[in-house]
Design a binder for these strands. Structure first.
Lengths: 198, 198
DNA sequence: TAAATAATCTAACACTGTTAAGCAAAGGTA
DNA sequence: TACCTTTGCTTAACAGTGTTAGATTATTTA
């Protein structure tokens, strides 16, 4: 019965191949160029077999989105482990978020809908919520107990997120700002918000 | 020769009809649903005649984008006229930006590529640059002369823009935050940045 | 070896943006 | 009035898209 396992492993392989082929195509030609037939070509099959692994094209994008959040979560975990002071940890987490957005540009695009049309963030699965929760918890930790209401944490969380995501979006759609200025804006804004929490 | 004028006016009418039909469709069914044949149906023609008025689909989106920037510019102008203090003017301008994004959600989406795929911001025509320039100039005005370098103004400009655009993007892709909190975040962040300029 | 099952492909549907060819009505000219 | 040319518009088509049904081939099981 070990052959069953081998076959299952092979099926898993082609599933991964589909996902890998997809990001390859996106990296080469952008999200708009991603088509079922192109994916099939790349994995040396015909288009219909993809539907044995994914319900439809959106399901592929959803899985890539999920994987993106997993990666982001891991990077944040690592950022935390490299500092002991909560404020420094939070800053490192946002920096990790920032770096992830450009290191995995294509994933960030599908995760946060910058220049992508698809998949309107339907299923809020745990993987997707994790990075958000990590940031939220860390902010909660920094805020002194007497100010620590859910609303206050929410406000600070969304303020930080807005700055970072906004700056990333702007950088991705048009590229005018210099790298030094990005770092400056990021440090200024995030630093200011973090300082205002205490 | 007045009949020539009438005919030209009619041509202008259908051009406008094409644009109006386009936003109508987008408002009803979203950007993804916008197709040449649907536009044609709405203006009671067949698809190919659209190409007598616009080079291709992207050209339609570009024109809508341009019109969006014109509207935004006018709203900002109005915001300025309603205050005398530069800091208050700037705050009103950002508020106008914010309100525009939700009053003309579809336009904002095509202007800033939130959940849209098309038209990668190719031709930076004056109409498009105007709102940016208005904000930039106002920020320059607020910053005291001894700090007023181009880089410093740039930094403050992008910081503000990032917060606002980020918050808008987040609100448009997922809607979790409450209206009151949005205003709070906006006022907090923008207010803070403006205060830090002086 | 024969039957049953799994794996894969071909063909098709309805849609997309876009172009070329053709028809029909209007305009100008003799 | 007759012809010609231009304009306005349509039909038909091409190549591409996501997706499904049916047929075909290969593999496993009895």
């Amino acid at each position: 019965m070990a052959s069953k396992d081998r076959i299952l492993r092979l099926k898993d392989d082609t599933r991964n191949n589909i996902l890998a082929a997809s990001i390859d195509i996106v990296k080469e030609e952008g999200w708009q160029a991603l088509s079922m037939r192109k994916i099939a070509d790349k994995i040396e099959y015909t288009a219909p077999i993809i539907y044995e692994y994914f319900a439809n094209k959106d399901a592929i994008l959803n899985e890539l989105t999920r994987q993106g959040y997993v990666k982001l979560g891991n990077l944040m975990q690592q950022a935390i482990s490299e500092h002991s002071d909560p404020a420094q940890q939070l800053e490192a987490m946002w920096l990790a978020y920032w770096n992830f957005a450009f290191a995995e540009k294509e994933l960030y695009q599908v995760m946060y809908g910058v220049e992508v049309n698809c998949c309107a963030m339907q299923n809020m699965c745990p993987d997707i919520q994790k990075p958000m929760n990590m940031l939220w918890d860390k902010i909660e930790e920094i805020i002194p107990a007497d100010k620590r209401t859910e609303e206050y944490v929410d406000t600070k969380y969304y303020t930080c997120w807005s700055v970072v995501h906004g700056l990333i979006s702007i950088n991705m759609t048009r590229k005018l700002t210099s790298d030094e200025m990005n770092k400056q804006v990021l440090k200024d804004a995030i630093g200011g918000i973090i300082a205002s929490m205490k």
